[in-house]
């Protein structure tokens, strides 16, 4: 069970997601409440803390907007919107799924994503969502923007071609004193991630692995440790993203473990 379950229950709130009545704790976000109740809301930036990813607390940078839902009729990001008594949430609807598909398309044309030779292929959330929303070819023109690759650090490689600027690494990958190793820099179409070249020198094996694991795409890759898990046995190869077994944290297996029983979308 995740750590949150050990906390004493505070005031319970009831709300509905797509007509299904659920209970949530005061202060939880819609995404957290949905997650607890086994309802899938897609996220690329928000991430539930669990044993596998080693996070101490849930992340909710609110950057990707793919979790956009309608709360009492208004579109809002589910990962940053708190639950409230009687809230009516629409989630899995054609309108919202089309918004989500558009966001996936935008990310595909913004960066330079070449799945067939990406180390993360099969465990990549962006790729998995593209399948989920049945993206064939993006309806937008590719940007083909030259992006930087930073291979000048120990243990890790950062590939700007694949980075979707979600900020998971910025928020979570820090020194014990809380200093960030990854930094969101610039703004607008020049936005990028830069690395603290001094701090990154002492990064531990565990932190480096965590950085790669929490990256929703293949932007952060371990050096000298490639393709451990064969294609076909990766995270989403047998249980597509959003299927029941890939939502519940306790049941999520590490990439590499062969898993069956997920519902196919």
């Amino acid at each position: 069970m995740s750590e949150d379950m050990n906390k004493p229950l505070t005031d319970l709130i009831s709300l509905t997601i797509d007509g299904q009545e659920i209970e949530a704790e005061e202060g939880q976000t819609i995404v957290q409440a949905a997650q607890k109740n086994g309802i899938y809301i897609p996220t690329l930036c928000a991430l539930h803390a669990d044993k596998e990813n080693g996070l101490k607390y849930d992340l909710a940078p609110g950057t990707c907007r793919i979790c956009t839902v309608k709360a009492n009729g208004r579109t809002t990001a589910a990962c940053t919107t708190p639950v409230s008594q009687g809230l009516v949430v629409e989630n899995d609807t054609p309108e919202l799924n089309d918004l989500r598909k558009t966001i996936v398309e935008l990310l595909f044309v913004e960066g330079n994503h070449f799945c067939p030779f990406c180390e993360k292929s099969g465990s990549c959330d962006l790729q998995a969502l593209a399948y989920r929303y049945q993206m064939l070819t993006p309806r937008f023109h590719y940007a083909f923007t030259p992006r930087k690759v930073n291979a000048d650090m120990p243990k890790l490689l950062w590939d700007g071609n694949r980075c979707i600027l979600c900020r998971r690494c910025v928020l979570a990958i820090r020194t014990e004193e809380g200093e960030p190793l990854f930094v969101f820099a610039n703004r607008g179409d020049k936005s990028t991630i830069i690395v603290d070249t001094e701090l990154i020198q002492d990064i531990s094996e565990e932190l480096a692995q965590q950085a790669m694991d929490i990256c929703p795409v293949g932007a952060i890759i371990r050096k000298e440790k490639g393709f451990d898990t064969p294609f076909g046995q990766r995270k989403y190869d047998h249980s597509p993203i959003g299927s029941i077994s890939s939502i519940s944290s306790d049941m999520t297996c590490s990439s590499g473990e062969n898993k069956t029983g997920g519902e196919k979308s």
């Binding site: 990310l107 937008f140 023109h141 940007a143 607008g188 179409d189 936005s191």
Partner: peptide
């Protein structure tokens, strides 16, 4: 807008330059 978007959220960061590029085309 493309320049002044803070770059934080995807639809604004990508949407602004996409609109600008399409207009230019």
């Amino acid at each position: 807008f493309t320049e002044e978007s803070c770059g934080s959220c995807v639809p604004c960061r990508t949407g602004t330059w996409m609109l600008r590029n399409t207009l230019r085309r």
